[in-house]
């Protein structure tokens, strides 16, 4: 039964990480435009480096 002493904390931490990720995604307004975001991912216009002035 010793296995429980680290399996339970692991399962709780993983759940907590999931919850934290959900809270972060909600706070950063990632559910505001579900339809648009699903299309933007297919667009090839992205800015992977800072703009050079």
């Amino acid at each position: 039964m010793n296995v429980l002493s680290y399996l339970i904390p692991i399962s709780l931490i993983l759940g907590g990480v999931g919850l934290a990720a959900f809270v972060w995604s909600l706070r950063s307004r990632q559910y505001d435009d579900p339809e648009g975001d699903s299309r933007r991912i297919l667009s090839d216009e992205f800015d992977d480096k800072p703009k050079e002035d």
Binding site: S28, D37, R40, S43, F46
Partner: peptide
């Protein structure tokens, strides 16, 4: 920042 690849 949430959407680094954001298109346009």
């Amino acid at each position: 920042s949430a959407c680094p690849a954001c298109a346009a």
